[in-house]
Simulated assay, not measured.
Amino acid sequence: MNEVSMEKISPKYQMVLIRKIESAIWHEYKSYKDVKFYIEKWHIVEENWNEFWENFPIILKEPNKEIDLLSTLHKIDGEILLKIAIDLGIETPDFIPSVPIFRNEIKSSYSTASRTFEDAFKQIEEHPDIAIGLVNSALESIVKEILSDERVNIQLKGNETLHCLVDKILKFLRLYPNSDIPNEIKQIGSSLLSICKGIEDLRSAKTKFHGKIEGDYIINDPLYTYFVINSVATVGLFLKNYFEKKIPPKEIVTNDDEIDNLPF
């Protein structure tokens, strides 16, 4: 993420992204005053007696000195634009490919996980370690929801870790370590389990979710967090969709007689 610049984004995508950001800002803040306040939160200025630097210029209209938002956005580099887009909840699938689909798919059927994932998304830049802990919890929530389905019939104690939960669901889906499937599939299942163990260990050892002392390493680079969030989105999407394919949602049976007797 830190390596992204506008030169690496196609001009066509730049135009689309900037227009989405402009629209989202006006929708959120309504007035020129509040829009300018929002943009100033991203504006950094460094001044010495003979030097002046700013990360981007804020363009003002004449003669009223109101912000020219569109012109200002075109002066902002790619990394900051992407951060603004994420802050506003704008999908950026070319850079975080799994995340937009994941967010949409869990919104209705996994509401607790969805809220947790959205909280994590807001923390990526400012508190990358907190975001990792939250996405770990979001994935746990999805797997628990699946395992609680009466057709799965797996009893949980309530204190299972992510690794333990995913181990149970992979066994239920017969993806690992079932001897009837090709070795390559078993290897992928094993690797998926390892990914979840890595996320869980990262949460425990490299975030503030467990007690830390002076000198302990804490994740502070958002780039690592984007990597973890993409991993969670990919694993979560796969488990959700594979489960729904293997165990389709129950059909709602409607009694035609009841419909015929409705008073309208």
Rank of each mutant, 00 (worst) to 15 (best):
D119H: 13
D119F: 08
N104D: 12
S108F: 08
A120K: 00
Y110L: 00
I124L: 09
K122F: 08
S109K: 15
A120S: 15
S114Q: 10
Q123G: 01
I101Q: 12
I124D: 05
I142P: 04
I142E: 02
R115Y: 04
S111C: 08
F117Q: 08
S109M: 05
T116K: 05
N136I: 00
E145M: 07
I132G: 00
T116I: 15
R115F: 11
L147C: 15
P100E: 04
I124S: 05
A138C: 10
Q123P: 00
G133P: 02
E118Q: 14
F102Y: 15
S108M: 11
S137K: 15
Y110R: 07
V135G: 05
I130L: 09
A138S: 15
A120P: 10
A131R: 03
A131E: 03
K122N: 10
F102R: 13
A138Q: 01
S114V: 09
K122W: 03
N104K: 15
E118V: 10
R103F: 11
V135N: 03
Y110T: 07
P128E: 04
R103S: 08
N136L: 04
E125H: 10
A131N: 01
I142M: 08
K107C: 01
T116R: 11
S137V: 15
I101M: 13
I130N: 01
I106K: 04
A138G: 10
S108V: 12
N104S: 10
F102P: 05
I132D: 02
P128I: 09
A120H: 06
I146M: 12
A113P: 06
S109L: 08
H127D: 14
E145A: 15
T112I: 12
I130R: 02
T112S: 14
Y110G: 03
E126F: 08
F102Q: 07
S137T: 13
R103Q: 13
I101R: 12
L134H: 09
S111W: 07
